Simulated scan of single mutants.
Amino acid sequence: MDTSYAQLHLDPELNHSSGYFTSDTLSLEQAQRAKTDAILSHCRIEPAMRVLDVGCGWGATARAVTRRYGAHCIGISPDEGQLAYARRRDVESGGPRVDFRLSRWEEFTEPVDRIVCVNAFENFEDKQGFLPHCRTLLPVGGVMVMLTVTADRRMFRVPSKDEIVERARESGFDVHTSGSLAADYARTLDLFVRNLNANRTALLSLVSERRLQWHLNYYAKSAAFLRSGLNDMFEFTFTAL
């Protein structure tokens, strides 16, 4: 997704992921901040730790790791455009720098103390290999927090909650799961749709009507799947054994 396009419908930090609506009055920006706060709190990050952000996007979570926790964060993504923005914003904002790298998760082999993966797992081709690979990067007691959409039906390209838990345990993790967060993601997607419609004129200077309509339909259908129970979403906390 082009950065200029993203800026017209995401929050100011460009989180292309679910927010956490801890109250009915939260804005999209506040819900995204609540999500980041919760995930990093559950990750139990301490100063000077090495933290890997897998699928870092435009860098929102990685920036929070360095600025709020004083940890060394490595953000990896296969998207050059997103990384260019993340690096530029990192420089402009000052303070501790994130080590943003153009890399797929399969290529990253360095030891780290913590791992975060925020709504990126859904896009991985090798979902079976991801958790075993992450376990090799962590020491005993290391923590990984992953937010992901799940599905019980085989027609969808994401595994079920139970399959993720089983794979994590086989890989050497203790597992804790949140309650369903489907409503949070559905509401986030509704707000993406609202923002796309509100900025239609500006967006059509960047993309075709067909492309914009595709995105509107995609977000709306994804929200409907979450509300109907065809998809769900959970936050998983994995502790290395």
Rank of each mutant, 00 (worst) to 15 (best):
T237W: 00
R187H: 15
E166A: 14
L241R: 13
V116L: 07
R87E: 10
D190R: 15
R187I: 06
T150W: 04
S222P: 01
S208V: 08
L138G: 04
P159G: 10
H42V: 00
V165M: 09
C56G: 14
S23H: 12
A6T: 11
L137P: 02
R169S: 08
T237L: 09
L241H: 12
Y5G: 00
S77N: 11
R135E: 11
R89K: 09
F236L: 07
R154C: 01
A48I: 01
A183M: 11
P111G: 09
A34D: 05
L40R: 09
T239I: 15
A38P: 02
R167T: 14
N195M: 05
S18R: 08
T22W: 02
D113K: 06
L191P: 01
F173D: 10
F236R: 10
A31K: 07
S228T: 11
R88H: 06
S180C: 13
H16A: 12
T136P: 00
D152S: 12
G94I: 06
G75S: 10
A151M: 11
R89P: 01
A64F: 05
A38Q: 09
Q30T: 04
V193I: 07
T148K: 08
T61K: 04
L230N: 15
T239Y: 02
I74T: 14
A120E: 07
C117M: 12
C43P: 02
